[in-house]
Structures are given as structure tokens and as C-alpha cells.
Write a protein that binds this DNA or RNA. Structure first.
Length: 496
DNA sequence: AAAAAAT
């Protein structure tokens, strides 16, 4: 099966080929022909399965060259978070480069002016989070009567976030004869009800959950006292981590931990919902382009965010909801690359852990990190008990940085060719290989200039109806992380 | 127990 078999236009196949993809994923192969035929779809899938391209590609062809009218978008995509919405917009840019579709990204946290301007001009594709969409609708800036195609993405998360009433309201404002695509990782009763009410004889497509079914993620749990989490984490990071997302349950923890990491000489950043939108974007961009290799995150980044080459996920706090565990660790091990996912477990986490292990159907192997706080930490199989009352060593930024392996040792290995579109946002370039101690922090900003061929953040304004870049870059399927793994991180698995 | 999303 290749993309050319799915009934997509030649221009679209060209854009897909330009991006280096040839083989559709399961969800793409099943969904694309049906979407092209105008059918409603329920897709049980997450990002990581290639879900986004499964609706973006056929939508580009369905909308074709048709003309939009002022304030009357022809299609609407609803996303639960601003980042996901932006990510979908990037997909339209990438695959729609040979089409003349206009789009607008309606998300909160940024000024409305550009969004309103884009709406006035008329857009083919509206990508929105519910809050801003409702706001602009109530202000009379949007007419949904011409909107014949609706995508409800991440429906279960919309439910979690209390968006379902908004979604229902929006559905009733769209024309009754329309095409509706609903994607969800799970089908809880309220989502079932929603689909019964707003979809017409949908085709049901279910693909395996990538994270639970994903053998490319090596999982481990680390039993740790709350007060030793930080030292343990530092030790594990010191041992050599290419790129890591560190999830915390609270925004305050995110902030504190990032601060500590930076003081410790790590190139880290943070993302959580209390940050200004532009800072969220900036941090994510830095992580994507390699300016930083550690991202401390709240669950705002748990689902869907597609960043290539994340080698490690750390659950600094065990997630309270087992579903979140699956989503979090799904940020690594993507597109055939291998990933590691480590979860810190304190005594209070016993119940959460039990729920997680029940959900994923296996016991997570336990690893022990010896000598946290030292720079020569190594992990040993679980049975080797760690000496308990070792005084945590104070680390200074200098000494700690010197003790760390030079960057070259942690550089990613050669790319592995992946043929399927699973990744919405490939890592752009190999990261800076210089050891950080050679480069004072204040000097680094001027060195990390953005590449000319990738959209700068200023370019990512909401109104995407600007002329398309003719030489849109070729995002080959670089798979990201597949590099050498420090030995210690690999031992100890299969012990329990 | 938190986070997210409109201001």
C-alpha cells in the first residue's frame, strides 16, 4: 500500500513525497479513502499513529481549490490545546504547499486582530480551540453556516477538559448536512453519545494504541523518596540523556525543577499552562531545534505533541490518571525510534502505580539508581539496595557541568529511515555538540540562530492565509533518537 | 490531589 493508492490528488502525493513519506499508516490507509468519499468517521487513535495526516491529507483534496467567502470558513478543526492546534496548522502548511488553501488558527493567548482579519478575508480551514472559537463566534466574526466539514480531534481529552458542551453548541451551529470526523483515543459514554448525535452512519476505524502496544519504549520505575527525586533525576540525566521530557503533576513543580536544572548547568526549559502563549511556543521551539534538550512539562504537553527524537520521558511525578501515563510515555519511542520512559514512584504513588500497571497490563520493571547526587551514578538491578543515608551532595553548576560527559558522547546516531507519516513536527537539525562549559550561557543565544527555512515564531502568526513559502522545506523522515544509550540505563530491565 | 481552555 502506498499513498498513490488512496485516491489522493497528484499534487498532494507530491507534497507527501517531498516530505519523504511513501507508506500510509493503518489509520491513514483506512480513513483517507472514506474521507474522500465524504463519509463520517470515528477514528479510535492517538497521535503517533499518523492520525493527523489521516484527516489533513484528504481534507486538502476535498477542499481543493474551492473559494472561501468572508467570515464563512469551509471547514473546522477543533483541538483541545493551543499547541495541538498549531501543530495541525503546520501540517496544512506542509502538505498543502501545492494547493491554494487559506487557513486561520484561532487559539487563545494571542491577539485577536490577525485572527479576525483572516476570517474577514475568508478561510478554507479553521483550526481552533473551543474557547477562542466561541468567543469570536459570539462577537459575530464567524459564520458557520458554510462549514461543511468538521473535525473533532482528541475528543476524549475535550471531554476531560469540559469542552463537550461547547462542542455540542458548535455542532448545532454547523449545517446539518456536513461531514464530521471524530477522533478519540478512547470511547467513554459521553463521547459515544456525542457521536450518536452528531455523526451520520460513521465508519468506525480503530488502530492499536501506540504506547501500550509500543515495544520500542523501554519502561522502568524508580522507587525514590520525594526529597531525593531531584538528585536521582540529576544522576540519571548526568549519565547521558539525549533529549528528555520531564513530566510533573504541578505547574509549581515544573517551574522549580526547571530552575534547579538550569542552575545545575542543564540546557532545560519548561512548559505549562500558566505561561504566556508566546513563551510556550518559544520553549517548544527551543526544544525542537535543539537549543535545549530537556523540557520540563505539565500535562499540557502530555498528549498529542509530536516532537521527534525524544529519547527519554521521565515521570518526575507519577501521573494520577493511568491514561496520562500512556500519553506521557508516548512522547518517546515514536516513528520506530527507541525510547526510554522512567517513572519515579514514592510511597504515596502505590495506588497510582497499581492503576497504571493494570491499564498497561504489565508490571513495569524496577530499576535502582545508585548514588544519586554523584556524577558517576549508575543504575543497578532492583535487588541491589541503595545505601539509604548517604548525604546528598551539593552540586555547583561548575563542578557538575565538568563532570558531565561531553556532548559528542551523547550525540544522536545515524537516522533511521521511516516511511510513514507519524510525525507532525520532525526535529530539524542535529543538536549542538559542544560541551556546555565551553559556552557561557549568555553567549549561546546569538549562536542559536533559527534556520532560514523554518518558520520563525514571528511567521507563525494566526492568519496563515499569507502566501505559501514556495520552497517549503523538505521534512525528510528523520526519526530522531536512535543513538547510543548509556549502558546503565539499559540494565535492570526484565528483573521484576 | 492537577492541568487545560476565553478574558
Amino acid at each position: 500500500m502506498i499513498f498513490a493508492d488512496l485516491g489522493l490528488s497528484e499534487k498532494l502525493i507530491q507534497a507527501v513525497t517531498d516530505s519523504g513519506y511513501t507508506t500510509p499508516t493503518a489509520i491513514q490507509a483506512q480513513a483517507i479513502p472514506s474521507v474522500l468519499m465524504g463519509k463520517d468517521i470515528i477514528g479510535i487513535a492517538q497521535t503517533g499513529t499518523g492520525k493527523t495526516a489521516a484527516f489533513v491529507l484528504p481534507m486538502i483534496d476535498v477542499l481543493g481549490e474551492g473559494r472561501s467567502r468572508a467570515r464563512m470558513p469551509r471547514s473546522l478543526i477543533l483541538e483541545p490545546t493551543r499547541e495541538l492546534a498549531a501543530q495541525v496548522a503546520e501540517n496544512f502548511d506542509k502538505y498543502g504547499k501545492y494547493h491554494k488553501l487559506s487557513m486561520a488558527l484561532l487559539i487563545g493567548g494571542v491577539s485577536m486582530g490577525d485572527q479576525i482579519k483572516a476570517l474577514e478575508k475568508g478561510v478554507d480551514v479553521l483550526i481552533a480551540t473551543p474557547g477562542r472559537l466561541m468567543d469570536l463566534y459570539d462577537r459575530g466574526n464567524i459564520l458557520l453556516t458554510g462549514c461543511g466539514l468538521l473535525v473533532i480531534d482528541e475528543a476524549d481529552r475535550m471531554l476531560d477538559m469540559g469542552f463537550i458542551p461547547d462542542i455540542e453548541t458548535i455542532c448545532t451551529r454547523l449545517p446539518a448536512t456536513r461531514q464530521t470526523l471524530l477522533f478519540s483515543a478512547t470511547m467513554p459514554p459521553p463521547i459515544k453519545k456525542l457521536s450518536d448525535r452528531f455523526l451520520t452512519s460513521p465508519k468506525y476505524i480503530e488502530v492499536a494504541r501506540p504506547a501500550s502496544a509500543n515495544a520500542s519504549i523501554e519502561q522502568g520505575k524508580v522507587r525514590v523518596q520525594s526529597r531525593r527525586k531531584r538528585d536521582t533525576l540529576f544522576a540519571m540525566l548526568d549519565a547521558g540523556v539525549h533529549t528528555a521530557i520531564i513530566f510533573c503533576n504541578r505547574k509549581t513543580t515544573v517551574r522549580d525543577l526547571n530552575k534547579a536544572l538550569r542552575q545545575g548547568g542543564f540546557d532545560s526549559g519548561e512548559i505549562h499552562g500558566d505561561m504566556e502563549q508566546r513563551d510556550r511556543i518559544a520553549e517548544l521551539d527551543k526544544f525542537k531545534d535543539g537549543t535545549i534538550n530537556i523540557l520540563v512539562a505539565s500535562d499540557v504537553a502530555a498528549r498529542g505533541l509530536d516532537i521527534k527524537g525524544v529519547s527519554h520521558v521521565f515521570n518526575y511525578d507519577a501521573p494520577w490518571h493511568p491514561d496520562d501515563y500512556v500519553h506521557r510515555i508516548g512522547r518517546t519511542g515514536r516513528a520506530g525510534a527507541t525510547g526510554k520512559a522512567y517513572t519515579f514512584i514514592t510511597e504515596e504513588d502505590a495506588e497510582a502505580l497499581a492503576n497504571i500497571e493494570k491499564l498497561i497490563g504489565t508490571t513495569i520493571p524496577e530499576i535502582t539508581v545508585a548514588d544519586p547526587g554523584g556524577s558517576s551514578a549508575e543504575a543497578k538491578p532492583a535487588k541491589a539496595r541503595e545505601p539509604e543515608e548517604r548525604a546528598p551532595r551539593r552540586r555547583t553548576a561548575r563542578g557538575e557541568a565538568k563532570a558531565r560527559a561531553p556532548r559528542e558522547d551523547r550525540a544522536p546516531a545515524a537516522d533511521v529511515a521511516g516511511e510513514e507519516i507519524r510525525e507532525e513536527k520532525p526535529r530539524r537539525e542535529p543538536r549542538e555538540a559542544k560541551p556546555r562549559e565551553d559556552r557561557p550561557r549568555e553567549d549561546r543565544s546569538r549562536d542559536s540562530k533559527p534556520r532560514e527555512d523554518r518558520p520563525r515564531s514571528a511567521d507563525r502568526r494566526p492568519a496563515a492565509s499569507k502566501p505559501r513559502r514556495s520552497n517549503d522545506r523538505d521534512d525528510g523522515p528523520d526519526d530522531g533518537w536512535n543513538g547510543p544509550m548509556p549502558d546503565f540505563l539499559s540494565v535492570g530491565f526484565g528483573e521484576s
